[in-house]
């Protein structure tokens, strides 16, 4: 296990820039989540760490060692794909032992270590089966065992749970999160599912258009988004235009007693939970009502024509066209610089 450092990593394909000058460190033993919309460069970043892409510029370091031009088979990196990519011509045990075989570990020891890993992942009884006879969740466990068997410097997970159903995903997420934390494996976890990233990762890096928007613990990313993109991508936010002065932000239709770093034009990111119903002086018009069971999601237009998303308890009989009184909880908004 070791630190993995990306130094101003850039990858271009012809005119297309997939990754644009990313500086990022995966700390020894942590699970770093990489999230972003498709095409943001997260998979390219993963493939560069694995050695399947050579960066156009920049370096990849494992601890202090520059591995930028080391071929994949000499990097000792564990890879787990969404599509599992297990070796169908071998048994589960042979799959897990394959990496050890390549390392020249003797047969008896290979078998023992593979069986230990299968037991750890709770699939010991599948050792002699073929991968094609297993369910998706079981295959993913085998994929993880195979990648962990080589005791990799870094474990790279590329959307490993995307193909699984919601219930299984939740269970596997908790289980695998605990396992990786116990083993203290340095892990890069690429996903488009921010909830998954929040639940499993020690820190999250948000990518957009090949650049790093923000990196930090899940709570920080959620509560104090650094950019409008992060505010919108991680949980939904409404961005309100305002002017900051003397510890107030003037939104035009109301004033919020929140501090901005500098006076002048700002944007205020507000989560759905920031809008409180019933008591406020802001009059908003309901434009859409979506019943979600335990709550109702409303879209409403503020006096400055911004559309906000908010949640109401249960079914309260809201209808499109209603005027509802709102207030904004200043504890739950975050001031961004004007973009």
């Amino acid at each position: 296990m070791s630190d993995v450092t990306l130094e101003s990593l850039t990858k271009t394909y012809g005119d297309e820039t997939a990754v644009d000058g990313i500086d990022l460190t995966i700390r020894d033993g942590e699970i770093l989540g990489v999230v972003g919309p498709s095409g943001c460069g997260k998979t390219t970043t993963l493939r560069t760490i694995a050695g399947f892409e050579t960066p156009t510029q920049g370096r990849v370091l494992f601890d202090e060692v520059d591995v930028t031009h080391v071929p994949p088979e000499e990097r000792n990196v564990g890879l787990v794909f969404q599509s599992y990519a297990l070796f169908d011509t071998m048994t589960v045990r042979e799959n897990v032992a394959f990496g050890l075989k390549m390392q020249g570990v003797p047969k008896a020891e290979r078998r023992e270590r593979a069986d230990d890993l299968l037991a750890m992942l709770d699939i010991a009884e599948l050792a002699d089966r073929r991968p094609t006879t297993l369910s998706g969740g079981q295959q993913q466990r085998v994929g993880l065992a195979r990648a962990l068997a080589i005791e990799p410097h870094v474990l790279l997970l590329d959307e490993p749970m995307t193909g699984l159903d919601a219930e299984l995903k939740r269970r596997l997420r908790d289980e695998i999160g605990d396992l990786l934390a116990d083993l203290e494996v340095t892990t890069l976890y690429v996903t488009h599912d921010q909830e998954e990233a929040m639940a499993m990762c020690d820190r999250i890096a948000v990518l957009s258009d090949g650049t790093l928007e923000q990196v930090g613990p899940p709570a920080e990313i959620y509560r104090r988004p650094a950019t409008p993109f992060v505010a919108n991508f991680i949980g939904s936010s409404t961005l309100l235009e305002g002017v900051a002065e003397n510890g107030h932000v003037d939104l035009g239709f109301t004033e919020l007693p929140v501090d901005a770093e500098t006076d002048g034009a700002v944007r205020v990111a507000a989560r759905p939970a920031a809008f409180e119903l019933d008591e406020g002086q802001i009059a908003a018009d309901v434009t859409d009502v979506t019943y979600l069971g335990d709550r109702t999601q409303l879209a409403a237009t503020l006096p400055d024509d911004t559309t906000v998303t908010l949640h109401a308890d249960g079914i309260d009989g809201y209808r499109v066209g209603d005027s509802i009184p709102l207030s904004i909880d200043e504890q739950r908004v975050h001031v961004l610089e004007a973009g």
């Binding site: 071929p71 994949p72 890879l79 990519a85 297990l86 394959f98 195979r146």
Partner: peptide, 8 residues
């Protein structure tokens, strides 16, 4: 890629 990352 799986096989190569495993050292083959």
């Amino acid at each position: 890629e799986s096989a190569r990352s495993l050292g083959a």
